[in-house]
């Protein structure tokens, strides 16, 4: 496979990137037209990240790229070369759930669960940026994620619960 430009799709339509996914160095070859979402789900079997509207209108596919919450359905996978990607699978510490995951379960913040991975990673970025986020800040920070089941209130409460627990435990980012 020759590629004069180092990364990305060549004339054969295949592309190869090296990225860090949930802490693991990952070298993956894939159809060069794919989005990061498609590569995560189809080539790396990380199906926790959900395929929602495909057009940036719902937030279900959010992942962290270099710590920023972005929509993996709108990021071409070739663009992730060299990036640090965190998906919902990367939140738990081995068998120990992230405080956000625990709080989402306890507070009823997940019903059908389809939006949950997107909410979890966005909420993580939000608490990383603002560990003592107010209700208003949580509401504004999560305004790019749609939830059809909960009416959001229990999601806000879960983020607040997790924030309090993380503050009490001194959990690092």
């Amino acid at each position: 496979m020759s590629n004069p430009h180092g990364t990305g799709a060549d004339v054969t339509g295949r592309a190869r990137v090296k990225m860090t996914v949930n802490g693991d160095p990952t070298d993956v070859t894939f159809g060069g037209h794919k989005t990061l979402l498609e590569v995560l789900r189809e080539d790396l079997n990380l199906t926790g990240t959900k395929h929602g509207c495909e057009l940036g209108e719902c937030g279900a596919c959010a992942v962290l790229v270099d710590g920023k919450p972005v929509l993996s359905c709108l990021m071409l996978a070739v663009e992730a070369d060299g990036a640090k990607v965190t998906t919902v699978e990367g939140l738990a510490d081995e068998a120990r759930l992230h405080p956000l995951q625990e709080a989402f379960a306890d507070c009823g913040a997940a019903q059908c669960g389809y939006c949950t991975p997107g909410f979890l990673v966005t909420a993580k970025a939000l608490l990383d940026a603002k560990p003592k986020a107010t209700r208003k800040e949580i509401c504004e920070g999560l305004a790019g994620n749609l939830c059809r089941c909960t009416g959001y209130i229990q999601i806000f409460e879960a983020v607040e619960t997790a924030a309090a627990k993380m503050a009490a435990d001194g959990v690092k980012k």
């Binding site: 990364t7 799709a9 037209h33 794919k34 989005t35 495909e54 070739v78 070369d81």
Partner: peptide
């Protein structure tokens, strides 16, 4: 499911 058409990619 909608996918992107194929393209050549050049990271300048």
């Amino acid at each position: 499911m909608m996918r992107c058409p194929s393209f050549r990619y050049h990271a300048a």
